[in-house]
Amino acid sequence: MRKRAEAGLLETIVFLILNIAFFGVMMIFAYNSGSQSFIYEQAYAKQLALLVDNAKPDMVVMVNIDELIPITLKKNKDINKVFSVDEKTNEIRVNLNQKGGYGYKYFSDNSVKLEVKENYLFVTVGKKS
């Protein structure tokens, strides 16, 4: 009688644990998906590459990055390290995640400097020497 009761209790505990595990995994998945960081990475990388291609030397363009601040805080990422440019491969890189980001190439012969000041990204386009 006691054995049967113990078995029943064990079954209930296993059932509850599996349910909690399932809903926990779903909650974490929904929380991580909710930031849409990958979409922002892609959008900003492409937007900046097109901006550089279309810009003339000695232009400075200010890009509002208000919407990225909450994501960087959530991902524990320094906003100054989100944007980078690789001038060897002409690639604009946007990293909102700790593990990686998104890169998009530009084809113009311009030098690019990216700098974050408050809620704006300053894109300084110059002539490659």
Partner: peptide, 9 residues
């Protein structure tokens, strides 16, 4: 025909 790429750090 540029596809862009994901970068892993």
């Amino acid at each position: 025909n540029q596809l862009g790429r994901k970068i892993s750090v």
